[in-house]
Nucleic acid binder design. Sequence first.
DNA 1: CGTCGACTTGAGTTAACTCAAATCATGTGG
DNA 2: CCACATGATTTGAGTTAACTCAAGTCGACG
Lengths: 227, 227
Amino acid sequence: MDIVEHISSIPLFEGLSRGELEELSLIVDDLTVVKGEAIFLEGDDGNGFYVVISGKVKIFKVSWEGKEQILHIFGPGEPFGEVPVFGGKQFPASSEALEKGRVFFFPREDFSALIKKNPELALNLLAVLSKRLRRFASLIENLSLKEVPGRLAAYLLYLRGSGKETAELELDISKGQLASLLGTIPETLSRIWGKMSNGGFIESEGSRIRIMDLQGLEGLAEGEIRL
Amino acid sequence: MDIVEHISSIPLFEGLSRGELEELSLIVDDLTVVKGEAIFLEGDDGNGFYVVISGKVKIFKVSWEGKEQILHIFGPGEPFGEVPVFGGKQFPASSEALEKGRVFFFPREDFSALIKKNPELALNLLAVLSKRLRRFASLIENLSLKEVPGRLAAYLLYLRGSGKETAELELDISKGQLASLLGTIPETLSRIWGKMSNGGFIESEGSRIRIMDLQGLEGLAEGEIRL
DNA sequence: CGTCGACTTGAGTTAACTCAAATCATGTGG
DNA sequence: CCACATGATTTGAGTTAACTCAAGTCGACG
């Protein structure tokens, strides 16, 4: 597929003219990434931002002892690493490809110019950042105010919501990564997963999950009930 | 002081023409708040955003059991509650005045129109949201990857940074609120505060703090050393 | 079929929590 | 100006969710 085609299908660029899209296609850097490849590290200077074209990318922080907390997992069409473009300074977290894929890089300068000419684009960006703030607020709530069972329940409900609202779910990341996303470790996640299964809340086989007690999960997520 | 004066001194509105500032002054809602007054609640529809003129405002979430996590504390000149303006939907958290003060409210519609005409304003907003994402990333890191002593040390270093880099600090919120900001409870904070004092990291008397061992605090914040 | 990484299970430890009570601080009415 | 009420902070004792370390077990792939 042509680069312009890819760019035009990025939601962030909705509303741009054909000419602008072509202009963008000239300044974009088309990157191929392999599984586990670092895209940028916390503290690096951010001279532009990225958009996932294919594959998945995680944004994360690592503690002194090596524990990892995933902030985001982005898929095709989603921009990432925009903070330094507007906030100046460095990337607040690191980024790594979860699987082989393709990523576009847009240099800051050219992009900034485009924003000034396109209020529409600025609005799209504001919407993207707002959505991200929302996600962070929710993550903070999970980490600070919920126990791990509640976080897991909330995640399963989130997965369901983004799908067709069926009881059948497919976990699209490894359990190890899920643990990191929920702010815990694989051992703890595994134990709680087990309890949720015996508890009759879910049934699972590998990454395939079936929600058996939706109300129960909601109760867990809210903290009303416990495992 | 005249309303236009107040508005013109808000960093977010830097770059607006006199005419635009006056236009804003006509649509603004000038609110007086008392200590403890709720400004909006999580889930409320957001039909505009706010700017603190005087006093302090906290943005927070509350758990089922009543534990509170403060997301932000804003002072004069700082905007808050902008997420629903760009992201649609409701406020992701609640807001309450920490002390008697004054708050301006800007209705969404009029403001949106202004953005479209002012790329400058949009850029300012993007910078504000970016800064906020940074703060959240740091909060998430603290909650997930640091223990309470590390969070407290990081907070003290942050306080110092925003001041004149002296060893003398003034805690401008109650310890109870600080506990909530650090994702813990007053009892735990008190105990750790005590340990930091005996440990020779700080000396304190009420809200007045003196940093006695800067390197030690940095070590604590990084997780290299422990109490 | 063996190897490697992912996941699970077991045992023990610990940071931080809950509940309860004492102490301190501040501001107000008498 | 004092005595008390109210809220903030501290201290004590006990509990617990989640962690660490260690040892399997499972599963996919070369």
